[in-house]
Amino acid sequence: MLAKRALSIAGGLAVLGWPFAVWLALTYPELHILLPILALCFVLRLCALRGKTGALSRAFKGLALAGAVLCIASIWMREAQLLLWYPVVVNAVMLTLFGSSLFSRMTIVERLARWREGELPPEGVRYTRKVTQIWCFFFLFNGSVSLFTCLAGNIHWWTLWNGMVSYLLMGLLFACEWLVRQRVRRRYE
Protein backbone atom coordinates (compact mmCIF):
# COMPACT_ATOMS: atom_id res chain seq x y z
CA MET A 1 0.00 0.00 0.00
CA LEU A 2 2.83 2.38 0.91
CA ALA A 3 4.65 1.56 -2.34
CA LYS A 4 1.52 2.29 -4.38
CA ARG A 5 1.11 5.60 -2.55
CA ALA A 6 4.75 6.50 -3.28
CA LEU A 7 4.26 5.62 -6.95
CA SER A 8 1.18 7.81 -7.08
CA ILE A 9 3.00 10.74 -5.46
CA ALA A 10 5.97 10.39 -7.85
CA GLY A 11 3.62 10.37 -10.82
CA GLY A 12 1.71 13.37 -9.53
CA LEU A 13 4.93 15.30 -9.03
CA ALA A 14 5.94 14.48 -12.60
CA VAL A 15 2.69 15.93 -13.89
CA LEU A 16 2.84 19.08 -11.73
CA GLY A 17 6.56 19.61 -12.20
CA TRP A 18 6.50 18.92 -15.93
CA PRO A 19 6.47 22.54 -17.17
CA PHE A 20 9.35 23.54 -14.90
CA ALA A 21 11.42 20.45 -15.66
CA VAL A 22 10.91 21.04 -19.39
CA TRP A 23 11.89 24.69 -19.00
CA LEU A 24 15.05 23.65 -17.16
CA ALA A 25 15.90 20.95 -19.73
CA LEU A 26 15.42 23.32 -22.67
CA THR A 27 17.07 26.36 -21.08
CA TYR A 28 20.05 24.52 -19.59
CA PRO A 29 21.19 21.66 -21.88
CA GLU A 30 23.36 20.24 -19.09
CA LEU A 31 20.11 19.43 -17.25
CA HIS A 32 18.92 16.95 -19.91
CA ILE A 33 19.46 14.39 -17.14
CA LEU A 34 15.94 15.40 -16.07
CA LEU A 35 14.47 13.61 -19.09
CA PRO A 36 15.15 10.04 -17.91
CA ILE A 37 13.97 11.02 -14.42
CA LEU A 38 10.71 12.39 -15.86
CA ALA A 39 10.28 9.27 -17.98
CA LEU A 40 10.75 7.15 -14.87
CA CYS A 41 8.18 9.23 -12.96
CA PHE A 42 5.63 8.66 -15.74
CA VAL A 43 6.37 4.93 -15.78
CA LEU A 44 5.89 4.87 -12.00
CA ARG A 45 2.58 6.70 -12.46
CA LEU A 46 1.54 4.09 -14.98
CA CYS A 47 2.46 1.34 -12.48
CA ALA A 48 0.45 3.07 -9.75
CA LEU A 49 -2.61 3.07 -12.02
CA ARG A 50 -2.30 -0.63 -12.86
CA GLY A 51 -5.48 -2.50 -12.03
CA LYS A 52 -7.68 0.60 -11.95
CA THR A 53 -10.63 0.61 -14.34
CA GLY A 54 -12.98 3.16 -15.81
CA ALA A 55 -12.74 5.89 -18.42
CA LEU A 56 -10.89 8.32 -16.17
CA SER A 57 -8.30 5.71 -15.18
CA ARG A 58 -7.78 4.76 -18.83
CA ALA A 59 -7.27 8.45 -19.67
CA PHE A 60 -4.71 8.84 -16.86
CA LYS A 61 -2.90 5.68 -18.01
CA GLY A 62 -2.80 7.03 -21.56
CA LEU A 63 -1.43 10.35 -20.34
CA ALA A 64 1.26 8.64 -18.26
CA LEU A 65 2.23 6.57 -21.29
CA ALA A 66 2.26 9.69 -23.52
CA GLY A 67 4.51 11.50 -21.03
CA ALA A 68 6.94 8.57 -20.91
CA VAL A 69 6.97 8.24 -24.71
CA LEU A 70 7.63 11.97 -25.18
CA CYS A 71 10.52 11.80 -22.72
CA ILE A 72 12.03 8.70 -24.31
CA ALA A 73 11.57 10.09 -27.85
CA SER A 74 13.22 13.33 -26.76
CA ILE A 75 16.20 11.44 -25.38
CA TRP A 76 16.46 9.14 -28.40
CA MET A 77 16.02 11.87 -31.02
CA ARG A 78 17.97 14.47 -29.02
CA GLU A 79 15.06 16.84 -29.54
CA ALA A 80 13.78 18.21 -26.24
CA GLN A 81 11.21 20.39 -28.03
CA LEU A 82 8.96 17.30 -28.21
CA LEU A 83 8.35 17.73 -24.49
CA LEU A 84 6.39 20.92 -25.15
CA TRP A 85 3.53 18.92 -26.63
CA TYR A 86 2.49 17.10 -23.44
CA PRO A 87 -0.01 19.80 -22.29
CA VAL A 88 -1.60 19.73 -25.75
CA VAL A 89 -1.98 15.95 -25.46
CA VAL A 90 -3.44 16.30 -21.94
CA ASN A 91 -6.06 18.80 -23.08
CA ALA A 92 -6.92 16.75 -26.18
CA VAL A 93 -7.40 13.58 -24.11
CA MET A 94 -9.49 15.37 -21.47
CA LEU A 95 -11.59 17.11 -24.14
CA THR A 96 -12.19 13.74 -25.80
CA LEU A 97 -13.08 12.10 -22.49
CA PHE A 98 -15.47 14.84 -21.34
CA GLY A 99 -16.85 15.54 -24.83
CA SER A 100 -17.56 11.91 -25.65
CA SER A 101 -19.38 11.52 -22.34
CA LEU A 102 -21.90 14.13 -23.55
CA PHE A 103 -23.05 11.53 -26.08
CA SER A 104 -23.37 8.72 -23.56
CA ARG A 105 -26.11 7.97 -21.07
CA MET A 106 -24.15 9.58 -18.23
CA THR A 107 -21.58 12.39 -18.46
CA ILE A 108 -18.23 12.08 -16.73
CA VAL A 109 -19.19 14.83 -14.25
CA GLU A 110 -22.44 13.00 -13.46
CA ARG A 111 -20.48 9.79 -12.83
CA LEU A 112 -18.18 11.64 -10.44
CA ALA A 113 -21.16 13.31 -8.71
CA ARG A 114 -22.99 9.97 -8.31
CA TRP A 115 -19.83 8.38 -6.94
CA ARG A 116 -19.74 11.05 -4.25
CA GLU A 117 -23.42 11.92 -3.73
CA GLY A 118 -25.28 8.77 -4.70
CA GLU A 119 -28.57 9.29 -6.53
CA LEU A 120 -29.09 12.63 -8.31
CA PRO A 121 -32.38 14.39 -8.99
CA PRO A 122 -33.18 15.39 -12.61
CA GLU A 123 -31.99 18.95 -11.85
CA GLY A 124 -28.66 17.52 -10.71
CA VAL A 125 -28.30 15.51 -13.91
CA ARG A 126 -28.96 18.64 -16.01
CA TYR A 127 -26.49 20.58 -13.90
CA THR A 128 -23.73 17.97 -14.34
CA ARG A 129 -24.31 18.02 -18.11
CA LYS A 130 -23.79 21.81 -18.15
CA VAL A 131 -20.65 21.46 -16.02
CA THR A 132 -19.32 18.84 -18.44
CA GLN A 133 -19.91 21.25 -21.34
CA ILE A 134 -18.07 24.03 -19.48
CA TRP A 135 -15.10 21.72 -18.91
CA CYS A 136 -15.11 20.88 -22.61
CA PHE A 137 -14.84 24.58 -23.44
CA PHE A 138 -12.05 24.93 -20.89
CA PHE A 139 -10.05 22.04 -22.38
CA LEU A 140 -10.60 23.41 -25.89
CA PHE A 141 -9.43 26.90 -24.88
CA ASN A 142 -6.54 25.71 -22.71
CA GLY A 143 -5.38 23.23 -25.36
CA SER A 144 -5.53 25.91 -28.04
CA VAL A 145 -3.38 28.29 -26.01
CA SER A 146 -0.99 25.43 -25.17
CA LEU A 147 -0.75 24.65 -28.89
CA PHE A 148 -0.06 28.31 -29.64
CA THR A 149 2.75 28.39 -27.05
CA CYS A 150 4.29 25.27 -28.66
CA LEU A 151 4.13 26.75 -32.14
CA ALA A 152 5.41 30.16 -31.00
CA GLY A 153 8.55 28.46 -29.72
CA ASN A 154 8.91 30.85 -26.78
CA ILE A 155 9.83 28.70 -23.77
CA HIS A 156 9.04 31.51 -21.35
CA TRP A 157 5.46 31.92 -22.65
CA TRP A 158 5.07 28.15 -22.70
CA THR A 159 6.24 27.80 -19.09
CA LEU A 160 4.15 30.74 -17.90
CA TRP A 161 0.98 29.37 -19.49
CA ASN A 162 1.44 25.64 -18.87
CA GLY A 163 3.17 25.96 -15.52
CA MET A 164 1.08 28.64 -13.89
CA VAL A 165 -1.77 30.33 -15.76
CA SER A 166 -3.55 27.13 -16.84
CA TYR A 167 -3.38 25.75 -13.27
CA LEU A 168 -4.74 29.03 -11.89
CA LEU A 169 -7.59 29.01 -14.42
CA MET A 170 -8.37 25.39 -13.59
CA GLY A 171 -8.42 26.19 -9.88
CA LEU A 172 -10.65 29.19 -10.52
CA LEU A 173 -13.04 27.03 -12.54
CA PHE A 174 -13.15 24.42 -9.74
CA ALA A 175 -13.82 27.13 -7.14
CA CYS A 176 -16.53 28.84 -9.19
CA GLU A 177 -18.23 25.53 -9.94
CA TRP A 178 -18.18 24.63 -6.24
CA LEU A 179 -19.79 27.97 -5.32
CA VAL A 180 -22.47 27.61 -8.02
CA ARG A 181 -23.11 24.01 -6.94
CA GLN A 182 -23.79 25.16 -3.37
CA ARG A 183 -26.34 27.71 -4.63
CA VAL A 184 -28.01 25.14 -6.90
CA ARG A 185 -28.16 22.66 -4.03
CA ARG A 186 -29.82 25.17 -1.68
CA ARG A 187 -32.35 26.12 -4.33
CA TYR A 188 -33.50 22.52 -4.84
CA GLU A 189 -33.38 21.38 -1.21
Rank of each mutant, 00 (worst) to 15 (best):
N91V: 04
F174M: 13
A39R: 06
G11N: 07
F137G: 14
A10V: 11
V43S: 08
I9P: 00
V90I: 14
A48L: 02
A21E: 01
A6F: 12
G17P: 02
T96G: 15
G67V: 08
A175C: 03
E30T: 13
F139K: 07
L173G: 04
W18F: 15
P122S: 05
S74W: 05
F148H: 13
M170K: 01
F139E: 11
V22E: 05
R116L: 08
V89H: 02
Y127S: 03
I155L: 13
F60P: 00
S100V: 06
T159G: 06
N154L: 08
L84D: 00
P87L: 05
G153D: 07
N162A: 05
L147D: 02
L35H: 03
C150T: 12
A3P: 00
L7H: 03
I37L: 15
I37C: 07
I108P: 00
A14T: 00
R126K: 11
I37P: 00
G143M: 07
R50A: 15
T27Q: 10
L49A: 10
W23H: 13
W135A: 06
C150Q: 09
N162Y: 05
A64K: 03
L147N: 08
L35T: 14
K130Q: 11
W161V: 10
R181E: 04
T159D: 02
L151F: 12
A152S: 12
C150S: 07
M77L: 15
R187F: 09
A25C: 01
N154V: 12
V131K: 06
A64F: 00
F98Y: 11
L82N: 11
F138H: 05
R186C: 06
W135N: 01
R129I: 08
R58V: 12
W76C: 07
W85G: 06
E117K: 13
T27K: 10
L49G: 05
A175S: 10
V43Q: 05
T53S: 14
I37K: 04
T128E: 01
F103S: 09
Q133A: 06
Y167W: 09
V22G: 02
L147R: 01
P122L: 07
A21K: 03
L24F: 11
S146W: 04
F138K: 05
Q182I: 10
C47F: 13
L24Q: 10
A80E: 12
V22T: 10
M164P: 00
S101W: 06
C47V: 12
A55Q: 11
L34W: 09
I75G: 04
L40P: 03
L13N: 01
T96V: 03
R181I: 01
L13E: 04
C41E: 09
G51Q: 09
L95G: 07
Y28E: 06
A68G: 05
F103Y: 13
G17W: 04
L56P: 09
N162I: 08
L46F: 12
V69A: 08
V180L: 14
M94Y: 15
Q182R: 15
G12L: 03
G124F: 06
A152G: 06
E177Q: 15
V89R: 04
F148C: 14
T96D: 02
L46Y: 07
G171N: 02
L179M: 14
L44A: 10
S101E: 01
W85Q: 04
V93H: 03
C150W: 10
W157Q: 10
L35S: 08
L38T: 09
L65N: 00
R186H: 12
E119I: 11
T107G: 08
